[in-house]
Design a protein around this nucleic acid. Structure first.
Length: 352
DNA sequence: AATGCGTGGTA
DNA sequence: TTACCAAGCAT
């Protein structure tokens, strides 16, 4: 075994956190945890993991559920494609693999929502298959340890990291090893102000020895986020509201929302009634604007949303709304999966 | 191969 | 306050 792997394994035994998915050997539970944890902090994921397991104790229960229920349980976690793929894969496991996850890296990789990282994680942790995984933690640890100069955001950089990860992998205990290196990244080798004095690898660490911690990992440039302006029409008449499900290749795909007008520039609230789409939605309707919400600024990782909700009432619904949107009891809006933003708006209404 | 997908924590 | 980034994936 590599000396590095030995040090990692020993450190892990003494410092690993007691996390719910570390108490199981079930491939289903490990897979579930990995999907939830994709680009998600452990602290945020734990709660969802427990609720999912409670509602869906095994892959058959998950497969039997409706996609909408899965989305509703996923609400607030972000990256909603994960929820749809989670559900699709559960059904695939039941129909094609008789409810048992295949102990095979390539077969795992072929599952929806399972990429190189997750396939390696499930293969090594659940089945003891000797494959190295690379996540954000591993990138950081190895880039510093070996002083990798190629940006990890490029294919070359990722390959370089992967080669190193493969080289130091403890093939006898790949699951433990993989978790150990991630745990080191999560607890010690932090993005900012890493605790190098507590790090068992610091005598070997290139970045530490050269006092160049801040120079690694090397990253490429990020594109700046674009601005978008959303105007939601919260139209209600006699206890009904109108919603629809987003279905474009865009944010919040498959979540529900009120009729929306998007503009490329900011629009003052008093000017919204002059908007073409607004007039189209409300054509032939005598309405009044009950309330204009404050401006919600909703920064995503790649775009910033400037959003306002207009609460509008009328005696009867305009035909466009009735035709193009789904009419539901206002009280039942909470049964639908919605974005965090819409959830916040709905919460603000409850308080009144 | 580059871009887009959410939300929340941290400094 | 902004920027970074977290057990990545799909197209």
């Amino acid at each position: 075994m590599e000396a590095t792997a030995k040090i990692l394994g020993k450190w892990y035994e003494g410092h690993k956190r007691d996390l719910p998915w570390r108490r199981t050997e079930s491939a289903y539970e490990i897979w579930l945890s990995e999907i939830i944890l994709q680009q998600t902090r452990v602290q945020q994921g734990i709660h969802y993991y427990e609720r999912f397991l409670e509602r869906f104790p095994d892959v058959h229960q998950l497969a039997k559920a409706s996609t909408e229920e899965v989305l509703k349980l996923w609400q607030g976690l972000g990256y909603y494609t994960r929820a749809r793929n989670l559900h699709a894969t559960a059904r695939e496991i039941v129909s094609r693999y008789d409810g048992r996850f295949p102990a095979d890296y390539d077969k795992l990789l072929a599952l929806k929502g399972v990429g190189e990282y997750t396939a390696a994680a499930v293969a090594s942790i659940a089945f003891g298959i000797p494959v190295a995984l690379v996540d954000g933690n591993v990138v950081r640890v190895l880039a510093r340890l070996y002083g990798i100069r190629i940006p990890f955001t490029t294919p070359k950089g990722r390959k370089e990291i992967h080669t190193l990860a493969d080289r130091i992998l403890d093939k006898r205990n790949p699951g433990i090893h993989n978790q150990a290196i991630m745990e080191l990244g999560a607890l010690v080798c932090l993005p900012k102000n890493p605790s190098c004095r507590d790090c068992p690898l610091h005598p070997k660490c290139y970045a530490f020895k050269h006092e160049r911690i801040k120079d690694f990992p090397v990253r490429g440039v990020r594109e700046k986020s674009r601005k978008r302006y959303f105007h939601y029409l919260h139209f209600s008449c006699s206890g009904k509201v109108f919603i629809h499900q987003r279905n474009k290749k865009d944010i919040w795909n498959s979540l529900f929302e009120f009729p929306i007008i998007e503009t490329s520039r900011a629009v003052k609230p008093e000017k919204i009634t002059a908007n073409k789409q607004w007039r189209h939605l409300l054509e032939g309707c005598r309405y009044r604007i009950i309330e204009v919400s404050p401006l919600y600024i909703h920064p995503l990782s790649h775009q910033t949303l400037y959003v306002r909700f207009y609460e509008v009432q009328a005696a009867t619904a305009p035909s466009v709304l009735a035709q193009e949107y789904t009419c539901i009891d206002a009280k039942r809006i909470h049964e639908y999966p919605v974005s965090r933003l819409t959830e916040k708006y709905l919460m603000s209404l409850k308080k009144d």
